[in-house]
Write a protein that binds this DNA or RNA. Structure first.
Length: 781
DNA sequence: AAGTGTTAAATTTTT
DNA sequence: TTTAACACTT
């Protein structure tokens, strides 16, 4: 594409950013301001106008998805030579560097990558071995502290000084040191090591650094607001020679502080690079002005930020819709109904209507409702695909085949499927391994000579031979073929099939997916020499490499017309015509932790998350809230989120009823509310007064919590609106009924549901629908 | 060693 | 509510 043409399609600020001369450049890109476009155009500009060689450009993102998108767009823009540009995530860029040079700092180049689960197992083991009291010092906490130390480039020897000498830190220091030793022994790196050890490599081996300073002469970093200290240092080191560092980000969208992201990196960019040029992109091409105004109003309540204000020349658009419900299921019902209606009326496809929420737990009630109404959906996130048990089992096999040094994987599968190898046997092998200084697998090879294993050694050797045979038989197979072989020969799927449960079927489905992912990865040689398909252990290694660094969001595509459900975090970087943010409740969003932490930085991060959510919407935004919802089995009560109050009223289409008598969504069925006896009314009032105080401010003694939920109305009144209606259904199977939206129909079935009766009606116009009696508002005709 | 049952415990967000 | 860790039984 012609560069003149390309530039003429940009607004002045964008053009300035694209054509800015060499030197540090900070692009403050508000939500929807065409950030990716600017980055890709700049890359094209550098190549075409500045004579920069494609292989001297390195563009770094956080997710594979972002990298993939950037890759596609760069390819289109640059054409010849584009494939030589490094477009990759922080982690995969580091892996590539380490695969090549990590032996310079005493590691092996064929290391494996541990995920958080693996790390946790290692920590658990260490705690056992060092007899750490995990009642006081939780494994999770220890792991979190190790991780944040690594994010700050604090290595084990520096940890005591860094952390202090309170008992917990002393304990953590020991675990950290041992953890690092074991990882090394297992030839493994965790996620944080990928960054941290690359930095170490650069610091310890100057010629390697010098090599990359030359190679990545032009460095571009996306989502810079999410970088942590280690990533900052990494980038600074590489950019130190040429200062050609272009960072793009939005401090208002920094939402990963909890895992070490340091918003200071972007806020202080100009202090660190005094010659930096700063360009603000404030024109938004995504949303309506009303949505932007709402977002601006919310984020304005944050202190530590770069002042900026988004605007658009899109129209004003409709107001932000705000709905308040009694319960989470009513909230879900409304959202699903509304999505269905938008689809019916031809306003928005399912895939254009996204449901966002703060916590994954909230997806449940929404999912139930979507199922009930037969609305297709996809949930993004939750348990990472590669964290699922069955997938981890298969992967452990693959790792064992690829590299017997990874004790964790070997031990994971040594008794899967059951081979009669128990804990004591494993412990014997482990101690033999550590006394002889070999890996667990190598020790197992010697089972015959391990003291105390006389009887069990045959089983061990069977396992060893099994693995060795698998290893030999990899020859000539591609990754998918190898996965298939493992699945077949272990009998993994067969075993699941025998279970005959839904869950087992699910797992089989996941394994099939793994195989097709492997098939998709086939032939893709990560070192670049495309075209030649790889087989055998090389193919296996390539696949394992790919698999280690993927997130769920990476595989999200909007091919199928399904309603996407995801957390606000996952939604960052995406956009939808019609967005619902569910659970706008104080205590849920913002979460009670950030309310009670006393650290305003926590609240500001929540607010940024809210800002991210609002700015996902292009045309229509709905915020919903519920008075009460179930949280781990208990009903908790919420008032409306403060973020809602931060939106000016004139931007809101607000259904919060101001009149004293509340009519809930169920309309007539909630007449039950008005049939309470005087005494009951009184108790309900008392209860509500008590509950004025949100749950997270009440004393948390068990007794108090129980008496709060039980003696007064609590749960009953919640379920009541639905249940009381169903206790006396005015219709039965075979009756003709009328529905306010679907018109007339015949009742086909009435089934007892969890909360309510589920009525199946065959409507004359709209076909068969299943609905909850309490909400359906069916009238006998 | 494997299966069963009990208890406790925990819940943000994920490259 | 759901999950994981632990103890106990067979």
């Amino acid at each position: 594409m012609n560069i003149e043409q390309m530039l003429s399609g940009l607004n002045p600020q964008q053009r300035e950013a694209v054509t800015a001369p060499d030197g540090p450049l900070l692009i403050l890109a508000g939500a929807g301001s065409g950030k990716t476009r600017v980055v890709t155009c700049r890359i094209a500009y550098l190549i075409a106008e500045k004579g920069v060689k494609p292989w001297n450009i390195c563009a770094i993102t956080f997710t594979n998805k972002a990298a993939g998108e950037m890759r596609d767009r760069v390819n289109k823009l640059v054409g010849f030579g584009a494939e030589a540009i490094n477009v990759a995530t922080f982690h995969s860029t580091c892996v590539r560097i380490l695969r090549r040079f990590i032996d310079r700092i005493g590691y092996q180049n064929n290391f494996v990558i541990y995920d958080t689960d693996d790390s946790k197992s290692v920590v658990r083991e260490i705690c056992k071995d060092l007899s750490v009291n995990t009642k006081i010092y939780k494994e999770r906490t220890i792991l979190a502290r190790i991780s944040s130390a690594k994010n700050e480039l604090v290595y084990p020897d520096q940890f005591p000084e860094w952390a202090g000498n309170d008992p917990e830190s002393v304990q953590t220091a020991q675990v950290y040191a041992e953890y690092q030793k074991r990882l090394k022994r297992n030839n493994a790196l965790d996620f944080d090591d990928l960054i941290g050890l690359t930095v170490k490599l650069f610091r310890v081996v100057p010629e390697v650094l010098a090599y990359y300073q030359e190679k990545f002469r032009c460095l571009l970093v996306d989502e810079y607001q999410d970088t942590n200290k280690a990533q900052f240092v990494l980038v600074s080191l590489i950019a130190h020679k040429y200062h050609n560092l272009c960072v793009v980000g939005d401090d208002d969208q920094s939402i990963y502080r909890f895992r070490g992201a340091d918003i200071g990196n972007i806020l202080n960019f100009e202090k660190i690079f005094p010659e930096a040029r700063v360009i603000r992109l404030e024109q938004n091409y995504r949303s309506t002005q009303t949505i932007l105004d709402a977002a601006n109003a919310v984020i304005a309540n944050n202190q530590g930020r770069k002042e900026k204000s988004l605007w658009t020349d899109n129209g004003k658009g409709g107001k932000v819709i705000l709905k308040r419900f009694e319960t989470a299921s009513q909230e879900a019902y409304y959202i699903v109904e509304d999505i269905a209606r938008q689809k019916r009326e031809g306003n928005f496809d399912y895939k254009e209507s996204a449901i966002l929420y703060r916590t994954n737990a909230q997806s449940r009630s929404l999912e139930e409702q979507l199922l009930m109404e037969n609305v297709p959906y996809t949930i993004i996130g939750g348990v990472n695909f590669y964290a699922r048990k069955e997938i981890k089992d298969i992967l452990a096999y693959l790792r064992t085949i690829a590299n017997g040094q990874d004790d964790l994987s070997v031990r994971r599968i040594i008794n899967i499927p059951k081979r009669g190898i128990g804990e004591t046997t494993i412990a014997r092998i482990a101690s033999y391994a550590s006394s002889t200084g070999t890996s667990f697998f190598d020790a197992a090879t010697q089972a015959a000579v391990i003291p105390g294993l006389a009887r069990g050694s045959a089983k061990i050797l069977d396992f060893v031979y099994f693995i060795q045979k698998l290893r030999r038989d990899c020859a000539g197979k591609d990754a998918a073929g190898i996965v298939k072989m493992v699945v077949d020969r272990t009998g993994y799927v067969k075993e699941l099939e025998a279970e005959r449960t839904d869950e087992a079927l699910d797992r089989i489905g996941n394994i099939d997916e793994l195989i097709s992912k492997a098939a998709g990865a086939a032939g893709e040689d990560p070192s670049g020499s495309a075209g030649r398909s790889v087989t055998g252990l090389a193919a296996l290694n390539a696949f394992l490499e790919q698999v280690a660094l993927v997130a769920d969001i990476d595989s999200f595509s909007d091919d199928a017309d399904r309603v996407p459900l995801m957390t606000l975090h996952s939604a960052k970087g995406l956009e939808f015509d019609n967005v619902y943010i569910a659970g706008m409740d104080e205590g849920l969003f913002p979460g009670y932790r950030s309310i009670s932490s006393g650290d305003s930085a926590d609240m500001e991060e929540e607010r940024r998350l809210c800002y991210v959510g609002i700015t996902r919407a292009k045309k229509r935004l709905t915020l919903t809230s519920a008075k009460a919802r179930m949280l781990r089995g208990q009903t908790e009560w919420y008032r409306v989120s403060r973020f809602v109050d931060e939106i000016p009223e004139d931007l809101l289409d607000d259904n919060r009823v101001k009149s004293p008598v509340r009519r809930d969504e169920a309309g007539k069925t909630s007449a039950s509310f008005h049939m309470l006896s005087k005494a009951q009314e009184e108790r309900k009032r008392e209860h509500e007064e008590f509950l004025e105080k949100p749950f997270y401010m009440r004393s948390r003694t068990k007794a108090a919590a129980q008496s709060a939920a039980r003696p007064a109305f609590g749960v009953d009144i919640l379920k009541g609106s639905a249940m009381m209606g169903s206790a006396s259904l005015a219709y039965g199977v075979g009756d003709r009924v009328h529905h306010i939206k679907f018109g007339d129909g015949t009742v086909k079935e009435i089934a007892d549901g969890k909360r309510d009766k589920q009525v199946t009606v065959e409507f004359d116009q709209y076909g068969t629908k299943k609905m909850l009696a309490g909400f359906a508002k069916l009238q006998k005709i």
